[in-house]
Design a protein around this nucleic acid. Structure first.
Length: 818
DNA sequence: ACATTGCATGATTGC
DNA sequence: CAATCATGCAATGTT
């Protein structure tokens, strides 16, 4: 729909914000999801919509961007901030614009009573806006006809059918009756003002996907996800509460045109579901809207409890739309790093791809970390087999294995994909000693998807979900199917080796400075769990004192003295003693050094020896060669050539023989694996070509690394690449030469281009480079944290040894063992 | 020899 | 029976 109005083809745009009025033809940010599947453009400068935002044109071309609030009746034009609110409330399942006070109340009420027994039905448009004229009170209508509702849906252009609780309807009616006449006043104020709503850099939320949105009262959209599942009355022929919309994108090879069997109401749901409570029942939710969503097998329906959903939404401060989930197979969780995506799910919720090579796709985990996978397919029997490549680091980061479940969700608006997990052990009564459940690393987000639930029914992911929905005892069978292969589970020594490898791997990473580790003992092995990914900020050195206490050492860029810093500190690329706000005694270059380099060197050697001891049976470690980060840290301390090291760290990988030079797929842009790092960092081998393969152009760590490549006097004062002089830009090449091949910009730029081209996947991450100028400490910390993850982890450190062990465990297969 | 890639094959499942 | 998907394994590249 409206493909001809694709923003890619549009010229310069003018920001609608009168205060801003920025004009640009290139710098923009992804905004809300458009009905077309693309995204509205937001002003790079102020975060508002461009005048020529495709929002108006593509979302409702017939209305020229004007929408009418279903509550206050005011018409608000899109492409303005008011429309953002309107959009959020109407176009994504809301009722009315946010500027209606009543609207907020309704949403609040709705959020609270989501599990209430619905007694009214409604029809929405393709994005969830309620057509009030077809809200039907079926409280006393036992003859409710789905066909009639479907007819209404068709006649009104609606594509969704849901149910509205009685109280909701009351709320709607009440609100309609008492529509706030001051709406426009509020609107005009918000139109001209900016600070209240703009997602300025100063006010950027923690999670990137949220950064373009933060309505004053974000509605819970779980409302639109599974209303039919919480009904006490079975709705005959009700297809999962969703009716396919004709306007939805339908592309790619069509699978069987089947509708999933309508989920029968769970016996544990419905009438006994208390008002104002949040269901903890793990129930398969019908798929969210998406291409061909009605083809998704219930097996893949997300089975997140309302409680989890609510918590996750709260944790991410966003509205989470569960999309689908999959029980990991052995090959999914194996060393090969390829996760097979259910075809229907891939085609419904992932960007359309026409080339087998696919595209890089960014997926955020529940902690907010972003991972980049290669989303691609293989031709298969005149069909396609979709896979995500490069998932090993993420899989291992989530500590899931075969038999566990990974979940895919979407943050709306924005469309950011989110990957979560649910341990199989969450679903059985007895803990499998071979699949120890490490305590959730206290990340609130973790509990949303993988966290334990105290409701026995939540064990149903493996026991009752499908059967509840299909009335067929197939879940156990599927479970058996998934688990039947003896290689699926790691047992005994295999698991032990994995743990060792994990421990090994953990030591390769610098701990997050933002959290204290949680020490977990499993089989006499201590695991340090961090809530944040490893960081890679300024070239500081994290060390562990014999007491176990972490400390961070940083070198002043002015006097070169080393200073002790709190571990949670993440420094900008350039930092001087005067900025040592944590130690008033050593906040001047004139003060003597905290620690001398020889001590540091000795300290690191101690660490290395310790590592060597614990990895005595690890071939990859027995040579004692430093890991990439250790080497980097050591180099930082001992004065090794940081440029060479940085180049080595980001140097060319050699593990993808079939990919051509310049290939920017996720596989090719991954940093080298642990072994490769070790090899590249070995003496005489640090001349690796600087075929920079950072996947994150918004990667602060990458920036930091690149800064290491700069002469000292050319390093930027902060992490803003855009403020570098031209020479530095040439070297950094972060944003300014997207056409050059074989450099970081090539990779990032092409990724961006690909993302834009496909227009179906989140882009804000790719565009975050444009936001760097105003980064503040919080964002810097977050981004750098993620960046460290990417650099240190992606396809690398963990994939080396860990996967090798897995391979051994995978035993008889594989030519490598033949 | 090992690592990676991508196709082929067969088991499973739903119609 | 056809579609899907798990995974085997040959081909190819790298060390």
């Amino acid at each position: 729909m409206s493909e001809g109005l694709n923003f890619r083809e549009m010229g310069s745009k003018i920001c609608m914000n009168e205060v801003c009025r920025a004009t640009t033809s290139s710098e923009w940010k992804k905004g809300w999801v458009l009905k077309s599947g693309g995204f509205a453009m937001l002003c790079y400068n102020c975060g508002l919509a461009y005048e020529n935002s495709v929002y108006c044109e593509t979302f409702h071309p017939d209305e020229s961007g004007w929408r009418q609030c279903t509550i206050c009746g005011k018409r608000i034009h899109c492409g303005c901030i008011a429309s953002r609110y309107l959009h959020e409330y109407m176009d994504f399942g809301g009722i009315g614009c946010i500027n209606c006070v009543k609207s907020s109340e309704i949403h609040s009420m709705r959020s609270m009573q989501i599990d209430d027994i619905p007694n009214a039905t409604f029809v929405t448009n393709g994005t969830g806006a309620v057509h009030p004229m077809v809200v039907e009170n079926r409280m006393d209508d036992d003859n409710f006809s789905f066909e009639r509702l479907l007819h209404l849906a068709k006649t009104t252009g609606a594509s969704k059918i849901g149910q509205l609780s009685h109280s909701h309807q009351d709320g709607v009616n009440a609100a309609l009756a008492a529509a706030d006449s001051t709406c426009f006043g509020n609107l005009s104020q918000k139109l001209t003002g900016s600070s209240a709503f703009m997602r300025t850099d100063n006010g950027r939320p923690k999670h990137g996907a949220k950064e373009f949105y933060e309505p004053l009262n974000q509605p819970s959209l779980s409302f639109s996800l599974s209303p039919s599942l919480v009904t006490s009355k079975p709705m005959p022929h009700f297809p999962a509460g969703i009716v396919e919309g004709s306007e939805l994108n339908q592309r790619g090879p069509r699978a069987r045109d089947i509708l999933p069997k309508p989920p029968k109401p769970s016996p544990v749901l419905g009438p006994e579901t208390k008002k104002g409570t949040v269901s903890q029942t793990r129930v398969a939710r019908p798929p969210a809207e998406g291409r061909g969503r009605n083809q998704l097998l219930p097996r893949y329906w997300p089975k997140i409890t309302d409680q989890e959903l609510k918590q996750l939404s709260g944790d991410l401060k966003s509205t989470i739309v569960p999309l689908f989930e999959k029980v990991l197979s052995a090959s999914d969780a194996g060393r090969i790093g390829r996760l097979v995506l259910p075809k229907a799910c891939a085609e419904a919720y992932f960007p359309s791809i026409n080339q087998s090579e696919g595209i890089p796709i960014r997926i955020q985990d529940i902690k907010g970390k972003e991972w980049t996978f290669q989303f691609r397919f293989w031709p298969n029997n005149n069909s396609r087999m979709y896979v995500l490549e490069g998932v090993t680091p993420c899989i291992q980061n989530m500590q899931v294995q075969a038999g566990d479940t990974v979940t895919f969700s979407r943050i709306d608006p924005g469309g950011q994909l989110v990957i979560g997990c649910r341990k199989a052990t969450d679903n059985v009564d007895t803990h499998d000693p071979q699949t120890p459940v490490l305590p959730n690393d206290d990340s609130p987000g973790e509990t949303s998807f993988s966290g334990p639930t105290d409701n026995p029914l939540s064990n149903g992911a493996k026991t009752s979900d499908d059967s509840m929905l299909q009335h067929k005892p197939v879940s156990e069978k599927k479970k058996t199917r998934n688990m039947k292969n003896k290689r699926l589970l790691m047992h005994g020594d295999d698991a032990m080796e994995l743990r060792i490898t994990w421990e090994e791997a953990q030591e390769l990473l610098r701990p997050s400075p933002t959290v204290q580790p949680t020490i977990v003992m499993i089989d006499d092995h201590a695991f340090e769990e961090y809530d944040e990914p490893p960081v890679f900020g300024k070239r500081t050195v994290f060390t562990s004192q014999p007491s176990g206490e972490q400390e961070q050492l940083a070198q002043c860029d002015s006097c070169s003295k080393w200073r002790r810093l709190p571990v949670h500190v993440l420094l900008p690329a350039k930092w001087t003693c005067s900025e040592n706000i944590w130690d008033s005694n050593r906040c001047s270059c004139s003060v003597s050094e905290d620690i001398n380099p020889s001590d540091l060197g000795a300290f690191l050697r101690v660490n290395k020896d310790s590592k060597r001891r614990r990895s005595a049976d690890n071939k990859a470690s027995k040579d004692g060669e430093p890991s990439g980060l250790d080497a980097l840290a050591t180099a930082a301390v001992l004065g090794d050539n940081m440029d060479d090291l940085a180049e080595s760290l980001v140097g060319a990988t050699t593990k993808h023989p079939r990919h051509r030079p310049g290939c920017t797929c996720i596989v090719c842009i991954q940093p080298p694996s642990g072994k490769e790092l070790a090899a590249e960092l070995a003496p005489g081998k640090d001349e690796a070509q600087v075929d920079v393969k950072l996947e994150n152009d918004d990667n602060i760590a990458g920036h930091a690394l690149l800064q290491m490549n700069l002469p000292e006097n050319e390093r930027s004062q902060d992490t803003n690449p855009m403020e570098l002089d031209e020479d530095s830009k040439e070297q950094l090449d972060l944003n300014f030469h997207p056409d050059r091949e074989n450099d970081i910009v090539k990779a990032a730029g092409m990724s961006l281009a690909t993302l834009i081209k496909d227009a179906d996947i989140p882009m804000e991450a790719s565009l975050q480079k444009n936001e760097i100028p105003s980064l503040e400490a919080g964002l810097l910390s977050r981004t750098a944290s993620e960046s460290g993850e990417h650099i240190a982890d992606e396809g690398g450190i963990l994939s080396g040894d860990v996967e090798q062990e897995n391979k051994g465990e995978n035993g008889e297969s594989g030519t490598s063992l033949n």
